[in-house]
Design a protein around this nucleic acid. Structure first.
Lengths: 199, 199
DNA sequence: TACATTTGCTTAACGGTGTTAAATTATTTA
DNA sequence: TAAATAATTTAACACCGTTAAGCAAATGTA
């Protein structure tokens, strides 16, 4: 009865097709244009069969969000591994974050609220937690204090995150701003925070 | 024929009722739950008459966005006028911005992308421009350089805006974070940027 | 006053959405 | 071959934004 596995594989394939189709539609027309019927069209089925693979539309979005975090995690990790000193790591990691946001706009949008799923559900994603832990680790090394206050680390993380995310959001919504200037702002702000991280 | 004006007044009243109803629904159920039929129910009419006051749903959102900017403008102005020195003004103005975002979550959401109208349209809003000009003015005073480089002012403005907006977005999406810590982060970051504004 | 016109508003409809239940077709099992 | 099961579709529900047609009341005109 080897066909059991073959069928399993086929099922997994259509599951992936659904996700791929959803992402492609989002890339081409934006998340607001994504509909179950459009996905069904793309995978050459009718809409109801999607519900055999996902509980609902939000289920698809959640899975894509998760995959986005995995992708981001890989990028951030690579950036960190490319440097020795924590200060360099920190800067590279945030620039990697920045690059990810613009290389994968659609992912970034579902991951960070520009079009959002319920926050409670997303907070529980382990893939998301992994990313933030990587940042925390490096921040911990940057702080020279002997006993690294957990609250301080969290605060610094949010400071970094806020400015990067804020700059990205502003650019995603109000596009048409100067690309070069953004890089300037980003690097300036990062260096500033890193420099005074022990305040 | 004084009834002409009375009718005009009545019309203006229902127009306001539409906007009020829309805002209230958003406050109670979120923007995603706002529908033309719900607005119609609230003002005790049927949906089509709304189109005699607004071109479409986006028209309502745009008008509310505009009103949001007027409200924000007043708050920012008041914060500025409460202080003498530019450095104090700057800090107060951004804290006013922050407070506005949480006092009027729904306004902030339509104004800054969390749920968004087309950016091109919004950029043209004079009410929005007025707010950013107020910030620019104070930044200009903060910079000690004799010839205030226009590009530098713009960059500093975006730096401020990014961190404040970023922190707000993160809190609006991932609520449940520590209120006190946020204030700490905000004040720290603001003071940091102000301190090194001439870099 | 009687008729015509305009105004205010509603009902009905179109094409779209997410989602569910029933019906149908194809496949596997006995 | 017949029965059972799985895969897929059709039809439907309740909602959405929006538009066109219809109706009824108020207004203007003779």
């Amino acid at each position: 009865m080897g066909s059991k596995e073959r069928i399993q594989r086929l099922k997994e394939e259509t599951r992936n097709n659904i996700l791929d189709a959803a992402l492609q539609i989002a890339q081409e027309e934006g998340w607001q244009a994504l509909s179950m019927r459009k996905i069904a069209d793309a995978i050459e089925y009718t809409a109801p069969i999607i519900y055999e693979y996902f509980a609902n539309k939000e289920g698809i979005l959640l899975e894509l969000t998760s995959r986005g975090y995995i992708l981001l995690g890989a990028k951030v990790e690579a950036a960190r591994n490319a440097h020795e000193h924590p200060a360099d790591q920190m800067e590279a990691m945030w620039i990697a974050y920045w690059d990810f946001a613009f290389e994968h706009k659609e992912f970034y949008q579902i991951m960070y609220g520009v079009e959002m799923i319920c926050c409670e559900v997303k907070k529980a994603l382990p893939e998301a937690e992994r990313v933030s832990r990587m940042y925390d680790d490096v921040i911990r090394q940057l702080i020279t204090k002997v006993e690294p206050d957990e609250d301080l680390i969290c605060r610094k993380y949010y400071t970094f995150w806020s400015i990067v995310h804020g700059l990205i959001s502003i650019n995603l919504v109000q596009k048409g701003t100067n690309e070069e200037m953004n890089q300037h702002i980003l690097r300036d702000a990062l260096k500033g925070i890193i420099r005074f991280i022990n305040d």
